[in-house]
């Protein structure tokens, strides 16, 4: 609201039905025809895991998968994703079981404040879907559009590489070097 400009915001654009499959569930909501995907996902569908960091395509916090492709939902018109299959951070886990990429971000320090994490998870999941064995350089190129102010990216790259190794079956999901999280309920005799 700085400056003299006055562009009337109301009446809002006419509402339109927006439907898509979000995290495997069909969704149908009424939203303004000019809404951006980010707003529809957060405000209408309730995927609050999709984050808004800048609203202009510079931070990557809002990334989601649209038909498997990582997209910045703040730069995507909701209508352009009409009928698509969308995956947000909420859709990565299998029920209560974390996907390897999630577990690795948690275990290797890939997430500090966590605000950038949903975006990073989405872009890195998209990378691993296409390239199960990326080099560090390729990982860096995949996440170059994501901003993280906390980690300095190094532990993020480690997390992604650890997840890639698990996906390739080269290592088990294990806590980092020393077992700080003894699982009090592992399988086995009670």
């Amino acid at each position: 609201m700085v400056g003299e400009e006055h562009v009337s915001m109301i009446p809002a654009a006419p509402s339109k039905v927006w439907s898509a499959e979000v995290n495997g569930q069909p969704q149908e909501v009424l939203s303004p025809s000019n809404a951006i995907l980010l707003d529809v996902l957060r405000d209408k569908v309730g995927c609050l895991g999709v984050k808004r960091g800048c609203d202009m395509g510079t931070c990557g916090c809002c990334a989601v998968l649209v038909d498997g492709e990582p997209r910045l939902s703040c730069l995507t018109m909701a209508q352009d994703a009409n009928g698509c299959s969308i995956t947000t951070v909420e859709g990565l886990a299998d029920g209560a079981h974390l996907a390897p990429i999630q577990q690795c971000f948690a275990d290797h320090g890939g997430s500090q404040c966590g605000f950038c994490t949903p975006g990073f998870l989405i872009t890195s999941q998209a990378l691993l879907d296409k390239n199960p064995n990326p080099s560090d350089e390729q990982v860096a190129c995949a996440i170059e559009g994501n901003l993280c102010r906390c980690t300095g990216y190094q532990q993020i790259i480690e997390s992604i590489q650890a997840a890639a190794a698990i996906n390739r079956g080269e290592s088990d999901l294990a806590a980092p070097s020393s077992d700080a999280h003894p699982d009090p309920h592992p399988s086995g005799p009670d």
């Binding site: 995927c47 609050l48 895991g49 999709v50 984050k51 808004r52 947000t88 951070v89 909420e90 990565l92 886990a93 974390l98 999630q102 577990q103 971000f105 948690a106 275990d107 290797h108 320090g109 997430s111 500090q112 404040c113 966590g114 605000f115 994490t117 949903p118 998870l121 806590a175 980092p176 070097s177 020393s178 077992d179 700080a180 999280h181």
Partner: peptide
């Protein structure tokens, strides 16, 4: 027990699942 060990943040799972609630997530 844990001091000196590489310990993942206890709230990391909330953060990687999108369940962590930041300011604008309070509805």
């Amino acid at each position: 027990t844990t001091v000196g060990k590489r310990t993942p943040l206890v709230d990391a799972k909330a953060k990687v699942t999108g369940q962590a609630w930041y300011g604008d997530d309070v509805r």
